[in-house]
Amino acid sequence: MITLTHYIGLSLILFGIGTIGFLVRRNAIILFMSVELMLNAVNLMLVSFSYYRSEMFGQVMVLFIYTVAAAEVAVGLAILISLFRHIKSIDINQFNLLKW
């Protein structure tokens, strides 16, 4: 019998993998993928709560998260392209324009 706890465990482990990936990688695009992984983990948790509580709200929330994720990726990758023009690299250790 699969319970809510199984889904929450899966979702949290995926979120943790995303966190670790965000903190240990150097490639800015893999950082983006880690963020997507974390967003997906949250979506899974929302949908599983929606099922186990028999409410639609979780699914509607996921729809809005999709909107925000699409906007985030579009703007983020545009920033990355613009940064690549200046720095000629996607290594996040070289993105130190705002550091002083």
Partner: peptide, 10 residues
């Protein structure tokens, strides 16, 4: 530090 943060927060 990154791995520790991920594991601890999870």
């Amino acid at each position: 530090f990154g791995a520790l943060t991920g594991i601890l927060s999870t």
